[in-house]
């Protein structure tokens, strides 16, 4: 670990549900019109009020990083399948990946598709993987783009990203959406440069969330790697102090929700993409990720579903 001790700034507490309130947090978000059902768990519409919080949190993240000179890039929520395959995502998370399949048949196949649809049979036989895959994390489209520019300058590079991301994990927890937005800053450079970046954002992110009146704890964490082999990757990640999450109780105190994550990738993406430092050695990378919907949900859970009744200090921070 790079000198950062996991902290627990305040005990995880949740406001009591209304007396006799039988409905879940998700149901109450639907009832209040903040989220809109689509028929798929984890795939929701958002109201204007919900979006106003998302945008305010996004602005806060912009403000916190404003002096750093990050290069802002925005990618659509999909990336080239070739880049996705090379990224190594399928080694760790085959179960979460979302590939885009499209109809690749002829006219007879089309007729067959419609007949299957009419009969309620499987109509997907002529669907084939396209050249497009849904973005699993905002920084995934960035690495090949940065590598194509050649060696990093001596002081490395810093990027500002935001994207909808997809992970196939249907859930009734509103904090576990299948399509959600992730704001990221990504640092590329020497190990010292990227670790200093992560340290700085651990402090900034913690101050930002505490300033929004949220109970939080920063804890060592691991990515949800797939299967038994994944357990080893997860153990290694934890033991090496590569990932920290800023957790806020949203669904429960026992299983708080990771609202921000602070990740040191070591040379993983550098080796994968041929990213080189100015001296030709392999670049290291780190990122800080803000779960924009998760932070919004944490605010709604702790300050209530009526934004107008949020504490004045919180409203001031979000909307000035």
């Amino acid at each position: 670990m790079d000198g950062f001790a996991a902290t627990s700034l305040s005990p995880g507490v949740l406001p009591d549900d209304e007396a006799g309130e039988p409905r879940s947090f998700l149901d109450r978000l639907f009832d209040g019109g903040l989220l809109i059902r689509t028929g798929v768990d984890g795939l929701y519409g958002r109201s204007g009020a919900f979006e106003s919080v998302v945008e305010a949190v996004d602005r806060l993240a912009t403000g916190l990083g404003a002096e750093d000179g990050a290069e802002a890039l925005r990618f659509p929520p999909a990336m080239a399948r070739t880049a996705f395959e090379r990224s190594g995502y399928l080694k760790g998370f085959p179960n979460l990946a979302g590939t885009v399949h499209c109809f690749c048949g002829n006219e007879a196949d089309h007729a067959n598709l419609l007949a299957c649809l009419e009969a309620g049979d499987d109509w997907t036989g002529k669907q084939a993987a396209s050249e497009v895959v849904l973005t699993p994390a905002a920084c995934y489209p960035l690495y090949p783009v940065a590598a194509a520019r050649g060696r990093l300058p001596a002081d490395g590079l810093l990027f500002d990203l935001q994207s909808y991301c997809f992970r196939h994990e249907p859930s009734l927890e509103p904090t576990r959406m299948q399509l959600f937005r992730m704001r990221e800053y990504v640092r590329m450079g020497s190990p010292e440069q990227v670790l200093a970046f992560r340290e700085m954002w651990l402090e900034r992110g913690t101050a930002m969330m505490a300033g929004l009146g949220l109970p939080l704890a920063v804890d060592p964490a691991n990515d949800p790697f797939f299967g038994r082999a994944g357990r080893m990757l997860a153990n290694n990640q934890r033991n090496q102090g590569l990932k920290f999450e800023l957790n806020v109780p949203v669904n429960s105190v026992e299983k708080p929700t990771a609202c921000l994550s602070f990740n040191y990738h070591q040379d993983h993406f550098g080796l994968t993409w041929g990213l080189e430092q100015a001296d030709g050695s392999v670049a290291h990378t780190a990122c800080v990720g803000f779960g924009l919907e998760r932070i919004t949900l944490a605010l709604l859970r702790h300050h209530g579903l009526d934004l107008a009744k949020w504490p004045a200090a919180v409203r001031e921070k979000l909307w000035g």
Partner: peptide, 8 residues
């Protein structure tokens, strides 16, 4: 890391 998984 992935090599160690292959080895395991």
């Amino acid at each position: 890391s992935f090599g160690s998984v292959q080895l395991m």
